[in-house]
Design a protein around this nucleic acid. Sequence first.
DNA 1: CAAGCTGAGA
Length: 631
Amino acid sequence: MLRFPSTLSQMEKPIVSCSNIFTYSHSPPKLPLSSYIDINNPFHCLESCQSPRELKQLHALTLKTRPLQTQLISSKILSFLIPFSSPESVTYARELVNHLKPPYLQLHFYNSLIQALTNSSQAIALYGEMITKCIYPDTYTIPYVLKSCAQSHALEEGQQIHAHSIKFGLSSNVYVLNTLMRLYAVCGFTHSVKKLFDGSPERDLVSWTTLIQAFVKMGFAKEAIQAYFDMCRANLRPDKRTLVVILSACSRLGDLSLGTRIHENICDIHDIYSDVFVGNALVDMYMKCGDADSARKLFDKMPVKNVVSWNSMISGLVQQGQFKEALHVFHDMQRIGLRPDSVTLVAVLNACSNLGKLELGKWVHAYIDKNQIKADGFVGNALVDMYAKCGSAEQAFGVFQGMECKDVFSYTAMIVGFAMNGEAERALDIFAEMPMVGTKPDEVTFVGVLSACSHAGMVEEGWKHFEDMSRVYNLEPQTEHYGCMVDLLGRAGLISEAEVFIANMPIEPDAFVWGALLGACSIHGKVELGEAIMKKLVAIEPVRDGAYILMSNIYSSANRWKDALKLRKAMKERKMKKTPGCSLIEINGVVHEFRKGDKSHPRNEELRKVLGEMAIHLQNHGQFPTSNFIT
DNA sequence: CAAGCTGAGA
């Protein structure tokens, strides 16, 4: 006998008075209950039930009037409930299934319920109960439950179900194949996906799409493209979903010509502008391949745009270093009244970091608080980075402390942030916390750590961390790390140590490393060594101006004006232009940009007067600017 | 008896 305590108490009340479930709309209201019920067939009232409560009343009533038919009744009610997918009806149905026994308990009840529960992690448990009751899966059960496994990354359960699919002879079904492939794809087992695909007698477009997707997800973009061509060769035409996946492979490869080719193909086959997913994938592809103009053109032509379309534009521009343009697009987005989501805000914060737009960054922070967006993960990390790069290490630290789940990126942002703002000690304190919370530093973290040591002149400490990289953390130092070490040694005046260090490098020193040593020569006035490094640097990257400038500064400080002039001339002959020195400051929301030699600022005269006074003030206190202070 | 698998942006 079923027990539904709340329902029973409901049932004791006069049911007629509380609803119209047993009546038809034209029925007179106040007749006794018995006159509405067809005693021979109480189930024909089912369709008039309008709420779970009414259904429970009918259920209770039928159980009372027909105590010998509880199983039949429950299964009838269940059949009626199945098409409704509201949470209440699912809960009720799940309870009914618990009490049913074969032959009333049918496979399709489980199938429907498992499907309805795919998002709730109960699907797997229900599948287990089904097996316990000796009801065995068919080609519908397996895909539903596997979908749930894939969603919750339940690899072990998924593998057991994989075994079931073989045991019950279902593994040649293409839906079973596709969902199995999906399971292994989300768990990162690309090899298993490929093996399943290759071993299957039947594949459809979904199988190909899933295979390509698996390759893309794990960064095998070339294999993804290869599979795409294989698919075309097998005479299958891509659909919208395949195209989205293959376009993202082009994005990752940065292969503009392939991406453009696929774009042209799409125009032949589909009306692409009707699908916002394809449009977004195209915008993203053009952006990641460096063609911002084509991306913009496509974006403008899209008849339907959503927040992802805007985000693709904004983050694409940020990635290309077009920060001001990115903020322009963001303001357009606000003008049309589209609400930014966390992805938008991350991109905007990134632009703020690079432009020093502290005010806008603060606005984003306020927006995040006001809209109860969690300042965790990407958003939290972007906030920390923004405050740090805008010079507010304290506020960066505030956000950092408030974050519930800090990952490597959070720690790295904070360490680099403190290092950049001259707080080497605090940077190293944060670094020391990492082992305590079990977060493993990565290569970038060490760039922060080493540069902190470098700026604070902590030679010993720097050496220790550099050695720990490979010894403790199993990280191979890259040229950036060698560059930091050269910088650390060089700044501290240990130039010959730095030279030995470079000579012993296991990898080829690049411009970054030689540049650091040249910088040290510039600080310590080492002309001959500088000249030797200069030659190497020009050989590695002849178009960059940095080496020329540094070297010419070395000549100038050694009063070798002729040599300095010669270098400047050589630059002119090679048509190299010096990248002008540039600084930004934001006051009351307006960014003021100053380039070397630029006199265009409206308050230029005043600024120069103040700078002159500051120079005199500094000199009176024994500080002498090393180069032209006023330019 | 009813039903399924695959898509975008940090």
